[in-house]
Structures are given as structure tokens and as C-alpha cells.
Write a protein that binds this DNA or RNA. Structure first.
Lengths: 150, 150
DNA sequence: AAATTTACTTTTATGATGCAAGTATATTAT
DNA sequence: ATAATATACTTGCATCATAAAAGTAAATTT
């Protein structure tokens, strides 16, 4: 948890120092693709992150300016986590990662149609994903999902 | 070092399980951007990877099919590490990571001109990077560097 | 033949993660 | 109003990964 020393200012190393651990990008994925917003929703994700690790990662991501936390209006026990501008800027990176994984994992769960649509027309799709997520929507889930607009 | 259990077949998680540690992508970066090819060259990189960790990461990346190792013709003590097809397919992801880092690190070392060129014309640059690296060249170093062709 | 280079391995210390359990506050049910 | 439940955490402990330092074996240079 102590990542105070900066190893270099290579942009790739900088990015890795911000989110190059096994969990951070899965949290961002949960927001972008599945519209998750609360601690409990992140905790319930398929990869079974440990609760203390989730708390650490959320705090780190907030400190790094990738997510922000707001109290929930309707339930005061909950906080709502959303992407900042820096976080939204991760969408193209996340997409390339998803395309690589979908191409190279023979057992991938990635929906074939989405992969084809995305790789065919990034210029059009990525801004659509961004504006959707900005408004609290997601790629696959919810009434305003990106896939429902295609 | 024991990453035998697959947490999920989400393409993003798959990618993270292949190279989602703090070092693997720095090795790929050294190949793509700086034309590094041998153990000693990777060991000498700015971020100062520990020698045992480098040995582990090289072995893992080879096992995952991202790099391949060939004996060096001119010096039989050395091995030459190169990207496989799977490894070459990481170039777009690495580029997005570099663009994110260059944009969000106020102290970035990324060359401004390269960042602008890349973000303006990915369609043209990325295939050029790929064919260059395939032939043993790199983005910034060597007589056949990508930047020397622009 | 001796010194150096290269690509490692081994050992020990530290730090991060995984798992199980506990806590504080807010909400819902009775 | 009280009890039960939900939510977002924290704490303690075992295990795993990384960092640092040193050592090793084969190939090459002097």
C-alpha cells in the first residue's frame, strides 16, 4: 500500500503506478461495463475481491483522482462511486485490454457482437461509451446501456 | 508466482492475469520502445527491477506466450527475447496506456511530438510500429526506429 | 590461465493479499 | 420503540510476492 516513491516518469510506468495492480482496473471495468456504483456491488463481482483489498483500492483510486465518492441520497449508509475525468480517460485503454483478452482467450466470456462492433468502429463507439458512463450509465447494464443504443 | 487458478473469463480479467502485475508491461515497453532484447538490458532499465523478479517475469511471459527466447548467434552466453504474435498485439494497449500517462502526469518524460503524432494518427502509426518491432526494430532506438521514419 | 560478462538462483526481510471475523451506522420490520 | 438486517468498512493472521544482497555456472575476453 506504500507507493509514494515514483520509479520513473515514463508514461507507461506512471500509468502502471496509478492502476497497475491486479484489482484497480476490475473496479473501473465494473463501473464502465456493468454500472456498479457501491461497495457492496464491487464486493459481489465475479473475481471475489477481499473486502480489505477493496477498501484499499477504492481509497487509492480516489487519492489518485480516478474515482470520486459521493454520499447516496436515498440510502445514507451507501456511498456512490463514479469515475472522474481521469477515470473516464481510461475507457480507450480498457477497450484495448478487452479486445486483447477477447482475442486471445479461447474461453472468453466477451460477447462476440460487442467485440466486433467495438473493433470495427472505435471512433464512434468510444465517445458513446464515455458520455453514457458520464451520465451514470454503463455498456451492458441499465435502461440507457450502450448496447441498447446500437 | 502461482497464478494457475483463473478467476474469470472476463476478457479484461484474462488480460490482467496475463500481464497485470507491476513489471510485465515494462518489459514489453522496453522491447517495443527501446529495442531491448537481453536479460542485462532489461535489468538496466530505469525502474530497477530486481534480478530475481526479472527472471520470474521473463519465464512467466514466455509461458503465457507473450515473448519467446532464442539463443544469441554472436554471443552464446546471451539469449534474445522477442515478442510473439500475442505480444505484438499488445502494442495498441501499450499506446493507450502511454497516452493516458502522458496526458495525466504533469512531469511526464514522454516526447510531446511523439504523443501528438500517435494520438493524431493511430491508424497509420500502430501498423508501422508493429512491422518495425516484428523485424527487431523499436519506436525510439536503432537505425530503423519508427521516429526516424516520420 | 585469470578476469569479466551474462544469465541466472538462493536467501532473508519486508510488504501486499486472502480469508475469517468483528464493528459502527443506517434502514426496515414488528 | 425495539429487534433484525444491510452496508461499509476495520482488524488479525497466514500466505504469497517482491526487494535487496549475495552467490553460481557457463561463455567470452584479455
Amino acid at each position: 500500500m506504500k507507493r509514494l516513491d515514483v520509479k520513473s516518469h515514463c508514461p507507461i510506468n506512471y500509468a502502471l503506478e496509478c492502476f497497475g495492480d491486479p484489482w484497480s482496473l476490475l473496479i473501473v471495468r465494473d463501473i464502465v461495463y456493468f454500472g456498479k456504483k457501491t461497495y457492496g456491488e464491487f464486493l459481489a463481482s465475479e473475481e471475489r475481491i477481499a473486502t480489505n483489498v477493496l477498501a484499499n483500492r477504492l481509497a487509492d483510486l480516489e487519492k489518485k483522482g480516478i474515482i470520486k465518492k459521493c454520499p447516496c441520497d436515498t440510502d445514507k449508509r451507501k456511498d456512490i462511486y463514479m469515475l472522474t475525468e481521469r477515470g473516464l480517460d481510461l475507457i480507450p485503454l480498457l477497450s484495448e485490454m478487452a479486445l486483447w483478452g477477447a482475442k486471445h482467450d479461447v474461453d472468453t466470456d466477451a460477447p462476440k457482437e460487442w467485440v466486433e462492433t467495438l473493433s470495427r468502429d472505435k471512433e464512434h463507439i468510444l465517445p458513446l461509451v464515455r458520455t453514457t458512463v458520464e451520465k451514470g450509465g454503463a455498456v451492458f447494464m441499465g435502461p440507457n446501456s450502450v448496447v441498447s443504443k446500437l
